[in-house]
Design a protein around this nucleic acid. Structure first.
Lengths: 236, 236
DNA sequence: GGCCCGTTTTGCGCTACCGCAAACACCAGG
DNA sequence: CCTGGTGTTTGCGGTAGCGCAAAACGGGCC
């Protein structure tokens, strides 16, 4: 089994308050694996046999309705955990996880979780924090979907992506993994057509530069204004 | 300080795997309080000095935007915890809690939490489960808001309320706390006008019986059909 | 019993956004 | 260099549901 270097993960919030020796013991239970772009890591509804920590790359978690519609639950950034079904008492994965870029993950068997949190209670506390944070983010998203119109929601979504996974360029901030209009639509509760129209509009105003699965925020500042303005659009 | 009877709360999921003596110790740190109908328990943005366990009554947690719009995050039923800001690492309450009926709660000081989970790790694990469940419910709600139209969302919302807090009557299921059209609108991301129109329609079809802050599902079964039908409305 | 206030109902435009469809751009592979 | 396929753009109706306004209802309180 591949050895995992503790120094790479010791600083993660998940392991806050965990001694180096404990961390070593925790990591011994994990194996690492590589998933290539566009391959599924687990499928919604499958037995939750493992949970994951993303080391490198980007993963999209998406939920599908019985009728086949999808929404993007979140994009996982390096250092974050995902597939924690057991922590929340679910036997099956509630969403599908797919690598949107070549990705490297640590994998623990779900069965190890109860033992781990018993031996290292800090793990449970840390996980509680991150799950709680995600819960708050979900509530924010619900609030946005209830009260804002599409353009503002897209602005917020892109700003969040830029914050989480933005690469600074001299002429703006690029979202550093492939993302389609469809993906953005599924994050904001609209259609790819509407997303396309709005991004086109922004592009002609010089706010963004975008192409096939690629988005660069040229004027993040002005997009913040868009995101925060009232519904009346500031008609003067 | 009022003594709390352990037998009333011992069976709650929060205390699963906690010994009676430990439970006793945990409860010694709490005090109980009564909130009358329509009084605020805490306000969004206030210092999170306490966390709560609802013993009796019903509490609405709502989030307000900078522009004053509100959404209902959830209704708290007896036996559930709320105001767990510290568990998720927040110093301030992210929402406002208001008693919608005369309510009795247990109150712990936030400062007790770290000590409690250190002494009783099961608490952290149990809380993680409930927070995880709420996270899943939030995702379901986002999915619904993204893919369903208003009538179906209202159907789902009422069915959930009925399940959580429904009182069985001989002629249907009554939601056993006061709830307005406005509240339902804020749960489903629509306006009170639209809710009113839809409930009026249902009433004339005999699906519900409703009045001032009062809703009885007369035909839960048919409402399930409404909730689950496809967008095409089953046009024949 | 009568008054007052919060809730609910309902009508009527309006518009943001969807849904379909067709053309278009771009990348990969042969 | 051509060709197929996936992602994107754009036009053009159609409509679900919003927003405003006004009326009706109902229940509590004096």
């Amino acid at each position: 089994m591949a050895k995992v270097d503790t120094s790479l993960v010791a600083h993660l919030p998940l392991f806050a308050g965990v001694t180096p020796e404990a961390l070593d013991e925790i990591l011994r239970e994990a194996r690492s694996a590589r998933f290539s772009k566009n391959s599924a890591i687990f499928e919604q509804g499958a037995d939750a046999q493992s949970f994951f920590l993303l080391l490198h790359g980007h993963v999209r978690a998406a939920k599908t309705t019985p009728t086949g519609e999808q929404i993007v639950v979140r994009y996982v950034a390096p250092g974050e955990t995902f597939g924690l079904a057991m922590a929340i008492g679910a036997a099956r994965y509630p969403a599908t996880a797919m690598a949107v870029d070549d990705s490297v993950v640590l994998i623990w068997p779900t069965s190890a979780w109860p033992r781990l949190i018993e031996r290292f209670p800090a793990l449970a506390a840390n996980t509680l924090q991150t799950v709680g944070t995600r819960l708050q983010e979900s509530h924010t998203r619900i609030l946005e979907m209830s009260t804002q119109q599409v353009e503002q929601r897209i602005a917020h979504a892109l700003l969040r992506l830029a914050k989480q996974s933005g690469k600074k360029l001299d002429h703006g901030i690029e979202i550093d993994f492939p993302i389609s209009r469809q993906d953005i639509a599924q994050m904001t509760g609209t259609t790819l057509h509407t997303v396309s129209r709005i991004l086109s509009g922004w592009e002609s105003q010089g706010l963004v530069e975008s192409g096939r699965q690629r988005i660069i925020l040229r004027e993040p500042h002005k997009i913040v204004v868009l995101a925060e303005r009232n519904a009346d659009g500031g008609a003067a």
